[in-house]
Design a protein around this nucleic acid. Sequence first.
DNA 1: TTAGATTGACAACGTGCATTGTCAAACATG
DNA 2: CATGTTTGACAATGCACGTTGTCAATCTAA
Lengths: 220, 220
Amino acid sequence: MQDRVAQRRALLLEAALEAFGTRGFHAVTVREICAGAGLTERYFYESFKSLEALFSALYLQLNDQLKRATLAALIAANASSSAWDSSSRIDVLAGAALRVLLEFIRDDPRRARVMLIDAISISHDVQQISGQITREYMELTRRFIDQLFPNAASRGVDLDLIASGLLGSNIHIATHWVREGLKTPFDVVLRNCLAIYQALGAYWPKLAASTMPDKPTPAA
Amino acid sequence: MQDRVAQRRALLLEAALEAFGTRGFHAVTVREICAGAGLTERYFYESFKSLEALFSALYLQLNDQLKRATLAALIAANASSSAWDSSSRIDVLAGAALRVLLEFIRDDPRRARVMLIDAISISHDVQQISGQITREYMELTRRFIDQLFPNAASRGVDLDLIASGLLGSNIHIATHWVREGLKTPFDVVLRNCLAIYQALGAYWPKLAASTMPDKPTPAA
DNA sequence: TTAGATTGACAACGTGCATTGTCAAACATG
DNA sequence: CATGTTTGACAATGCACGTTGTCAATCTAA
């Protein structure tokens, strides 16, 4: 029966989240996954070719969940703010997306280990996937700031780099948050993540329109 | 002779930078390190207890180099700008530190793999070290922005979080830069890294003094 | 009930690696 | 020169894991 196969696959994915999300990819073996899932090794190879394949599947699954939730929140937020000024739209849109991300991590911190730490340091295959997904989020961010400030892409401002930086700030803050055991209150984390977007949003017009330092402060 | 031991240790560290920096920690074996160093396995254990110990030593070495260069650049930059306004001091100090970081990566991109990617995903021991070093850089950044804007730590602004975000933006931009083969010009990368600092610097007074959104834009 | 498929526990095999050991050649030093 | 130390190449051991195979127990369907 195919339902049985799918059910076992789901069990394996759950065990994978537990194992990879707590001990990290490289500390996990096939036997451990099977023990955690309450299955024997045979059923591992029934659904996955290797540990890497299992990790990839888990990673893609988590990412799909996050992406769906983010896009849903974004269109909902966008519907309720389409006529406001830029500053408010940053608050609403970036706030909505950041809230989804932080809730996703807070609700199950094992996801952070899988998505934010391990995914970028495993084999070439997984890094390809991770790179592709990162590029998707960068594209989302890039489009986001591009739409808010259409005149931004000038005078040495590189939207990809800014988007990469914003993404990195979110990732690092979230990772650090989890590492510290989520002891910082959720709203404080969200507020400060958002503050970076707000700061760039406020600074953007000045940045794009007027002086950008052409000699980037040679050191010493 | 102890010089001989130290020399072999240096050879091993160099081979480690090549191996870890190009293929990543988990794809590397003791034998490969020894082959790369032109030594036999015996001399590996003469200087290091395990691959992890070698990695830790390499990581600490690289970090020491970067830290020294950064501090030197900072005091040099600080000496030449002690009386200017806040905005210019951001440009000079953050610009100097960022320049050092980006040069360090550009001059040898293998360092990025070791310091920015692998160091956070290996065993617990290495993660302890990595966490400690991250905390040091966060403290540096935190002191940096704290000194520039003493009134900032108010109204829900968490300097640790902002520092973490800035650090994350640098790390992510640098990592992405290396992944893309350093094809983006150095000055463009530097300018845009710096822009995030400048944006926060410009936004800070407003942020700390006046309205910070107390309800963080509930989504949907 | 009975034949065929499915399951579960676990043994078996092969592999790749860390780690230690062997031994002869090269070397330094009295 | 002679002796003890250092070096280099590589074999030997042991372990942990991935992967496949065995076999009896259980379940399913006529």
